[in-house]
Simulated scan of single mutants.
Amino acid sequence: MKLAATSLLTVSHNSLGINHTNAKSEKGIAIRFLGTGAADWNGRDERGELRRLTSILVDRHILIDFTPTTEDMLPVDCHPDIIFYTHSHNDHYNPTAALKAGVKRVYLSQTWYDIAKVDFDQAAKALNMPSPLITPVYTGQQIKIENLAITPLPANHATEYITEQALIYLIEKQNTRLLYATDTGGIPALATRISGIDAHQKGSPITALIMEATMGMNCEADFRLFTHSSVALVERTVRVLKETKRYLPPAGQPVYITHLARTLHGTQADLDTHLPAPLRAAYDGLEVIFYPNHFDPSSQT
């Protein structure tokens, strides 16, 4: 199948009749981690730790994945209207939660569009709400939303639907290029090629990275290695990207890991102490602005 690598889909908020008053960065990409846990989290654990299921909020109006566990993490004055899904697993995908949050436009892989259309129509009917506009996207297709460009890339992850292609996303604003990679076992070769960070270096380097580390440290033998990443794999990925100048972050900017399995990771305090630099464990409610490589955050007004 021919890749839609040069295709472009442009979205105007004016066409939706929506106005936003977002406290967001004009130069960087603002991320709020709504949840940072893998599927084995179900409330507070025996250690007193709590991780909601993995989801992020981008520039205060775009969700990537969303479930009922993260509803309380949305800012009170925030009403996201767009959602991108990585895949159909129920720790990432819940149409009822998305509709209740105010989502009116949905993007997901064309490989499971028909399934999602039925799910959302049923959820909308049960809530007595209009169905959102669901747009199928293709690997390599760039979607323009205001000053953001979001490109779906193939993930190494499997679902119950044998033909479904799970996705990771490249999020760009001006010279900031953030790779958001969950759920996935490493970064597939095709994803590096489309994003321009493969061996040929045809594109710009990424300047920020959020990557799943479902498996903790010293858990390389875990069965999840076929569809998820470990701390060691993330560390090795970062080292290779930096040494080959395909990852050029601003000085001191961490690589954030997310989608942490309850049974394979220590507490947040343990992770803060023992994670190898530049890795840092994200936590629910963490807010980060990712800037271009040479941007001075003190100049942001």
Rank of each mutant, 00 (worst) to 15 (best):
M1D: 07
L9V: 14
L9A: 10
N14C: 15
L16F: 14
L16K: 14
G17I: 13
I18C: 03
H20D: 13
E26P: 15
G28Y: 09
I31Y: 07
R32V: 05
F33L: 11
T36I: 11
N42H: 11
R44S: 09
D45S: 07
E46K: 12
R47T: 06
R52E: 04
T54E: 13
I56M: 12
L57Y: 08
V58P: 11
R60Q: 11
R60F: 09
H61K: 13
H61T: 04
D65I: 00
F66E: 02
E71I: 01
M73C: 08
P75V: 03
V76T: 11
C78H: 12
C78Q: 03
C78W: 00
I82R: 01
Y85M: 02
N90H: 06
H92M: 05
Y93V: 03
T96Y: 03
A97W: 03
A97M: 07
K100D: 04
A101V: 00
V103G: 03
R105L: 08
T111N: 00
W112M: 01
Y113S: 00
A116V: 07
A116T: 05
K117V: 13
K117A: 11
A124M: 10
A124Y: 10
L127V: 07
M129D: 07
L133T: 14
I134Q: 07
Y138I: 09
Q142A: 12
K144D: 05
K144F: 10
E146F: 10
E146L: 06
N147P: 12
N147K: 05
A149T: 11
A149N: 13
L153M: 01
A155S: 06
E164V: 06
L167H: 10
L170Y: 02
E172R: 08
K173Y: 01
Q174D: 15
N175I: 08
A181D: 02
D183A: 09
G185P: 05
A191E: 02
T192W: 00
T192P: 00
S195F: 00
T207M: 11
A208P: 01
A213I: 00
M215K: 03
E220V: 14
E220I: 13
R224L: 06
R224V: 10
F226Q: 09
T227R: 02
V231G: 09
V231P: 09
A232N: 10
V234S: 01
V234Q: 01
V238S: 01
V238I: 09
K242A: 04
K242C: 05
T244C: 04
R246A: 06
L248C: 15
P254H: 06
Y256S: 05
T258F: 05
H259D: 12
H259G: 08
R262M: 06
R262V: 10
H265Y: 11
H265S: 05
D270S: 15
T273Q: 13
H274K: 15
A277R: 14
A277T: 14
P278G: 06
L279P: 11
L279E: 09
Y283D: 03
L286H: 15
I289S: 08
Y291G: 04
P297Q: 05
T301G: 15
